[in-house]
C-alpha cells in the first residue's frame, strides 16, 4: 500500500457554476497541454480556451476569472466530460482545487477518471441542477455540503441522496486506488489466466 490518494469524506464549500451541456474533455484541457510526463500543474490550463483569449489575456466574464465565484465544488451542465479519455481532465480539475463535480449526467470514462483521482462525481436531477444554478446566481456564497459517508449532497435549497458504487466509496474514503485492490488478488488473476481460452490460443509454445 504505497502512494495513497488524498482521502475524501466531507466537503463543505461554495460552488462554481458552469451551466453548459456536453462539455468535452478537449474544453476541460486542450490537447496541446497534454505533453507533460507527470500529473502536476494541469490546473493552470483548466478550461484554457474559455479562460484566456488569443493573446493570453484573461476573459473577464468567464466564471473561473470572476472572483465572485470560488470553492472546491464545480456544478456543471448535462453530459460533463464527454469525448477523449484523457485523465489530464481529472488532474486539471483536481489541481485547480475541485474535489466534487456535480452534474445531471457524466460521461463514463470521465467519471471513472474522477473516481480514480479523489474527485467525487455527484449526479443530481435536472431540476435540482437548475435549483443549484439559481441559488448560486442569487448568492454566490451559497454553501454546499457533500458528505460521502452519508452519500448526501445539500445546499442551495436542495438535499439529495446520491449514488456511488460501494467499492469506489470505500476507496475514496480510505484514499486507496484500484491497484492496491488488484494486487491483493494477483494469485487469483494468474490462476484465471492459466485456464483462459484467449490466453491459451495465443501461447506460441504450447
Amino acid at each position: 500500500m504505497v502512494e495513497l490518494m488524498e482521502k475524501i469524506s466531507v466537503i463543505r464549500s461554495a460552488a462554481v457554476p458552469f451551466p453548459y451541456e456536453n462539455i468535452d474533455t478537449d474544453q476541460i484541457i486542450p490537447a496541446r497541454f497534454l505533453k507533460a510526463t507527470d500529473r502536476l500543474g494541469f490546473g493552470k490550463n483548466l478550461f484554457r480556451d474559455w479562460r484566456y483569449d488569443k493573446s493570453g489575456n484573461t476573459i473577464k466574464d468567464f466564471v473561473l476569472n470572476n472572483s465572485v465565484y470560488s470553492g472546491s465544488v464545480l456544478i456543471a451542465g448535462k453530459n460533463f466530460g464527454c469525448g477523449s479519455s484523457r485523465e489530464h481532465a481529472a488532474w486539471a480539475l483536481f489541481d485547480y482545487g475541485f474535489r466534487v463535480v456535480v452534474s445531471s449526467f457524466f460521461a463514463d470514462i470521465f467519471r471513472a477518471n474522477a473516481l480514480n483521482n479523489g474527485i467525487v462525481p455527484v449526479v443530481i436531477n435536472e431540476n435540482q441542477l437548475h435549483q443549484c444554478f439559481e441559488s448560486i446566481e442569487k448568492d454566490p456564497n451559497t454553501s454546499f455540503v457533500m458528505d460521502l459517508t452519508k452519500q448526501q449532497f445539500s445546499g442551495g435549497g436542495i438535499d439529495v441522496d446520491f449514488e456511488i458504487d460501494p467499492y469506489k466509496k470505500e476507496c475514496l474514503l480510505n484514499g486507496l486506488d484500484d491497484i492496491d485492490f488488484l494486487l491483493q488478488h494477483i494469485d487469483e488473476i494468474k490462476a484465471f489466466e492459466k485456464e483462459h481460452l484467449v490466453h491459451k490460443l495465443n501461447q506460441t509454445d504450447v
Binding site: E87, A112, N113, D178, I179, L182, H185, I186, I189
Partner: peptide, 15 residues
C-alpha cells in the same frame, strides 16, 4: 478507452 490510472492498473495486473 481508459484513463491513465487504469493504464497503470493493467500494466501491473492485466485487470
Amino acid at each position: 478507452g481508459i484513463g491513465t490510472s487504469q493504464v497503470e492498473q493493467v500494466l501491473a495486473s492485466q485487470c
